[in-house]
Design a protein around this nucleic acid. Structure first.
Length: 1084
RNA sequence: GCCCAGGUGGCGGAAUUGGUAGACGCAGCAGACUCAAAAUCUGCCAUUCGCAAGGAUGUGCUGGUUCGAUUCCAGUCCUGGGCACCA
């Protein structure tokens, strides 16, 4: 019986699927199994599909998940897609294909590739950020951020309504309650906007006039656009931001309680960049203004030789002298053309411009020139610095470049040719700080500054608020409308605000996103004018309304209050359907009829119909007996007429009809649907926006959210992926709680990880979830690099010379597809077929073979060095592939891919198979009792595999499996008692072969649910130890001694040894170092 | 420029807290089985001197600490990842 991996793997994958082995349930009761949540970083489904680099982390997390399952945990290990993003949109711009279409296709490819590797995902829990059912909740969470502020006393997020209440009753530092109440709506909103956690403000973007669009940093190369090479300038534009800076301190503190690598924490700390220092005010000579600078080194205040403002600083225009005006303008134009990336890359080039103005030193009164320079950024600190050239290298270079005299305040510590940033020097020429060590002077200086009233102690953060809008199409639309420049949130009931269809993906007229081009969408439709209000106040439903005021529950609404009531009714109705309504709903939901989407109790045009299909403008009403009452008939007629004005058709079905014949009722709906034309743009038809805001023009926000919107909270959605009542049920989030192990690359160290940590903290503050750190432990995964192969074409010919002979010719180096190279040997036939130009190629061989050149590069299609995992799973099977990926090296390290080595792992699995079955003899396994030697091998292996798996040291675990199989082979051990335990250990790594052999051994039930074996120390006891013996630290021999031997005994044995005698050359040892169980070193 | 990580045979890598450097696998070489191939098995395989026994050198480089350093410290070079020139 052979190891037929193709048959085995296919069989078990089908079986596991049929048995729903990967189905994950959230237990309802309290006596549930302990949970374990393993998550991979959200993949973006790129068009190129998976290459062997991608699954590295997925395999690692899959092994860990399966291991935890064997250890008795209820494991959640989901997968889904971060499916909004720029590449799909770029592709749409190039090809005209809708991103939704290409994304769908890409995901299908990804999933089919993933499935061949045998992951234990519960695909029923898959989420995709670009689906309305998902982004409804991204929008909803955005609204929570929008409707919250950071309370500085409680250090947490609170509803903005609380702040409003406070302003209304007791005002604030800047205004009284009376003043607040007298402000216009717009004035109030402007004040609130400065506190909201999601807020809108002006920010600078990379603007490319020629393309009429905003560009990302990496689309700008050398100050021009990557596409087309057009000039790019800075432009102010209204943007959305998340107030992540409010959480800076808590993000820092939170690092203490998570298991991230120290380097990862360090990166986050550096990014947040908390610094303590002082803000100092410098008066400007001949101008009625002050320049505030932020400094971490107030001790150097007497070494200030000039001030530097960021070119964008608001005082620049005010203080520039007439004489310098021209130069400053020129410099500002230059700075505007510089991208952030460029400013970063070219540090050696010093640029700047004198403003002509002088500031006054607050202590010495000395005049200090004020410059502007691009090395000072507007967004950090106060956007102005005091330059101390003798202590700061950048300031020093600036001073030298512009010939500004340098004041030395640290005496001999400054050598005149470079700055010395020490804190240990003793200060000189520093007035009241003279003679103090700089470190100690910091506090003294701050106190003096505060005393003199010229500044104050200040904590600063390097981190800035996170830009949250993109002038793009393929992202979540903001649930925001603008009314006279005031941002108004949509109501929860209006979510999701779906992304409308567009025909072109070009930018809007002012560089806004493509959505700005859809006039019908931007200009919100259906807004009712006052004269259209109709006064009909019938009872909305036959049900009791309890505490509601009878005069307020009209179907027709005109005020915010009444609108909210409508929404409330709708929700209530939805929760509590009549029997007949429910029968119909079960037949209509999920597009069962004519593929049309129905909603129930969904407000439209001021009413709450029982069921509505927006795309067909069809309403279905289920009528109870009360509809026969004269009053009600009058109302029904009026309502029908009103809705008809909006193009709605109504189908009425009585309870009786439904109870007699459901099918006939559905048929009635079907017929009505067929008679209606399609109305495609759903948003236009959804509930009208009624009388909110300030009463002006209403326009939708046209930018969309960035990639990290959907990925900041996705780990919660997996816990409860289909819930349409809330983003994640509290019971589910309480049970699954934090992600226990999060696997992903370091490239997300500061972006995604900080954002999702912030969102989690906000959700925690608002009591939406019960924990404030999303990821308990982080495992970083390295990248797999490509190993490129080259062929050498003799210049001007179609002849290729083998790698080692290329020195004799003048050649061109060409990338060749690694898939047609075996190791380094080119498959010449495949090469000829690869490209038509090579069909007639000639070859100069060495020893009859063509040897390719090798280089390690990024794995990318353009280098022809990508390897499709499916090619390998087809050839060797998923089990081999999984183990080989792990065998390559530590997960967290980057390493080049080399397909060649996979043979070794495949051989190992075949060898394992031969412990059970022989090609000739058939079954060789038996039920004999195991020997001590065999038990030792087994228990040594259990111990090693368990600890390696716990530590994510999968490469050494694979080695340990190989060693175990080799040793069992040497022992000729074919015993079930031993082998079945090894199979359980192997299950996380190679589940298919483990399951097959498990069944062959006659075991009941799937091995996926087996119990992990326990290593017993009694089998591992050693009696003797081969000690290495060194003389003067150099190994000279080894001697086998009893493990319990003590120093005197050991010394005697060692000194009697011939080899050691020889090396002692008759001298007596000075000292003998003996470490029990380790080594012996004789010092002469 | 700043932050983080990593440099060990021909290759991927191993080495518990400082204690036998090179486990395991690939590639290579030699051999067994075979008409042959595949598959499988056995042996060798850091460099260097030596017939051998054995010796010397060796974990990017230069130093240091230590009886002993791939491991700890200082400096330096190179490679990869990230970035918002962060005062």
């Amino acid at each position: 019986m052979e190891y037929n991996f193709r048959e085995i793997e296919e069989k078990w994958r089908a079986q596991w699927k049929a048995d729903k082995q990967y189905k994950v349930e959230t237990p309802a009761g309290a006596n549930a199994k302990p949970k374990f949540y393993v998550l991979d970083m959200f993949p973006y489904p790129s068009g190129a599909g998976l290459h062997v680099g991608h699954p590295l982390g997925y395999i690692a997390s899959d092994i860990y998940s399966r291991y935890k399952r064997l250890k008795g945990f209820n494991v959640l290990h989901p997968m889904g897609f971060d499916s909004f993003g720029l590449p799909a949109e770029q592709y749409a711009i190039e090809t005209g294909q809708h991103p939704a279409v290409t994304t769908e296709k890409n995901i299908a490819t990804f999933k089919s590739q993933l499935d061949k590797i045998g992951f234990c995902y519960d695909w029923d829990r898959e989420v995709r950020t670009s689906e309305p059912g998902y982004y409804k909740w991204t929008q909803w969470l955005f609204l929570q951020l929008f409707n919250s502020y950071f309370c500085n006393t409680q250090k947490k997020a609170r509803p903005i309504a609380d702040l409003v209440k406070k302003y209304e009753t007791s005002g604030s530092k800047n205004f009284t309650a009376a003043q607040w109440n007298a402000y216009t709506k717009k004035e109030q909103e402007d004040i609130l906007m400065k506190r909201r956690l999601a807020y809108s403000a002006y920010g600078e973007v990379n603007w490319c006039e020629a393309l009429g669009t905003v560009l990302a940093n990496d689309e700008v190369v050398n100050g021009v656009s990557e596409r087309g090479g057009f000039p790019v300038v800075k432009k102010k534009m209204k943007q959305w931001y998340l107030r992540i800076t409010a959480y800076a301190d808590r993000l820092l503190e939170g690092l203490e309680k998570v298991a991230f690598s120290e380097s990862m924490k360090e990166m986050q700390r550096n990014w947040i960049g908390k610094s303590e220092g002082a803000e100092v005010s410098f008066a400007v000579k001949d101008a009625a203004c002050n320049i505030n600078v932020y400094t971490t080194r107030p001790d150097t205040i007497f070494g200030v030789d000039f001030l530097v403002l960021a070119p964008e600083h608001e005082l620049v225009q005010k203080i520039t002298t007439v004489a310098q005006k021209g130069k400053v303008e020129d410099y500002l134009t230059y700075v505007k053309s510089r991208s952030d990336r460029e400013r970063m890359a070219e540090v050696k080039q010093v640029t700047g411009c004198f403003t002509g103005a002088y500031a006054v030193h607050p202590f010495s009164g000395k005049p200090i020139p004020v410059w502007i320079a691009e090395y000072v950024l507007a967004g950090y600190g106060t956007g102005a610095i005091m330059a101390v050239p003798c202590g700061d290298q950048r300031d020093y270079l600036f001073a030298k470049h512009f010939n500004i005299p340098v004041t030395n305040i640290i005496g001999e510590e400054y050598n005149g040719s470079e700055a010395n940033p020490t804190k240990d020097a003793v200060l000189q020429q520093s007035d009241f700080l003279d003679g103090l060590k700089m470190k100690d002077a910091i506090g003294v200086a701050i106190n003096k500054i505060e005393e003199a009233g010229i500044g104050k102690r200040k904590v600063n953060f390097r981190m800035r608020d996170a830009g949250f809008s993109r002038q793009r199409y393929w992202g979540e639309p903001f649930p925001i409308v603008w009314e006279d420049d005031v941002a108004i949130a949509l109501d929860e009931s209006e979510l999701p605000l779906t992304l409308p269809h567009v025909d072109a993906y070009g930018p809007g007229p002012e560089g806004e996103g493509p959505l700005a081009n859809i006039k019908d969408w931007v200009e919100v439709k259906g807004r009712l004018k006052e004269q259209e209000f109709v006064d009909l106040t019938p009872d909305p439903s036959p049900k009791e309304r309890g505490t509601m005021q009878p005069d307020r529950y009209g179907y027709m609404n005109s005020s915010v209050e009444e609108w909210k009531n409508t929404i409330r009714f709708a929700k209530e109705n939805r929760k509590d359907p009549t029997l007949e309504e429910d029968i119909i709903w079960q037949r209509l939901r999920n597009r069962q009829v004519e593929g049309c989407k129905f909603r129930r109790q969904h407000p439209v045009a001021g009413y709450i119909p029982d069921f509505i299909c927006l795309e067909k403008k069809l309403i279905v009403e289920v009528d109870g007996a009360y509809h026969n009452a004269a009053e009600q008939v009058k109302f029904d007629i009026a309502r029908e007429k009103w809705l008809a004005e909006y193009g709605y058709v109504m189908v009425r079905i009585t309870n009786e009809e439904i109870n007699n014949n459901v099918a006939a009722s559905i048929e009635k709906i079907k017929t009505a649907l067929r008679n209606q034309p399609d109305f495609i743009v759903e948003n236009e038809l959804s509930a009208p926006l009624l009388g909110r805001g300030v009463g002006g023009e209403v326009k939708r926000e046209t930018s969309t959210m960035p990639g990290y919107a959907g990925s900041s909270w996705y780990f919660l959605r997996y816990m409860d992926p289909h819930n349409d009542q809330t983003f994640c049920d509290r019971h589910a989030s309480n049970y699954w709680n934090q992600v226990d192990v999060y696997v992903g690359g370091t490239e997300h160290a500061v972006g995604h990880l900080l954002y999702s940590r912030m969102w989690t903290k906000v959700m925690y503050d608002l009591n939406l979830i019960g924990f404030d750190e999303p990821f308990k432990k982080l495992v970083n995964q390295g990248m797999i690099q490509g190993s490129s192969r080259f062929v050498y074409r003799v210049k001007g010919t179609n002849t290729f010379v083998s790698g080692n002979l290329k020195g004799d010719y003048e050649t061109d180096e060409l990338h060749v597809d690694v898939n047609i190279v075996d190791g380094v040997e080119l498959d010449i036939d495949s090469f000829k077929k690869w490209k038509t130009e090579f069909a007639t190629a000639e070859f100069i061989l060495e020893n009859g073979r063509y040897i390719c050149g090798v280089e390690t590069e990024k794995m990318s299609k353009r280098y022809y060095n990508t390897v499709d995992p499916v090619v390998l799973t087809d050839k060797y099977g998923a089990d081999t592939f999984r183990m080989y990926e792990m065998f390559l090296g530590p997960v967290e390290q980057s390493k080049p891919w080399d397909t060649k080595g996979i043979e070794g792992v495949h051989r190992f699995l075949r060898k394992l198979w031969r412990l059970f079955f022989d090609e000739m003899k058939g079954r060789v396994w038996n039920t004999d009792a195991a020997t001590d030697a065999e038990l030792k091998v087994l228990h040594k292996t259990i111990k090693k595999i368990e600890s390696d798996t716990e530590n994510f040291s999968f490469n050494t675990a694979v080695s340990a499996f190989m060693i175990a199989v080799n040793e069992l082979f040497d022992l000729k051990c074919h015993k079930k008692e031993i082998l079945e335990k090894v199979l359980i250990l192997l299950t996380p790594y190679a589940p298919h072969i483990a399951e097959e052999l498990w069944q062959q051994l006659g075991n009941e039930g799937s091995i996926l649910n087996a119990v992990y074996p326990v290593a017993e120390e009694k089998y591992l006891v050693e009696t003797s130890k081969e000690y290495p013996i060194s003389v003067n630290g150099k190994l000279r021999t080894t001697i086998s001694m009893d493990v319990n031997a003590l120093q005197p005994e050991v010394e005697q044995i060692v000194l009697e040894n011939d080899i050691i005698q020889k090396w002692l050359e008759g001298k007596s040892p000075k000292k003998i170092i003996f470490v029990k169980g380790k080594m012996v070193n004789v010092v002469v």
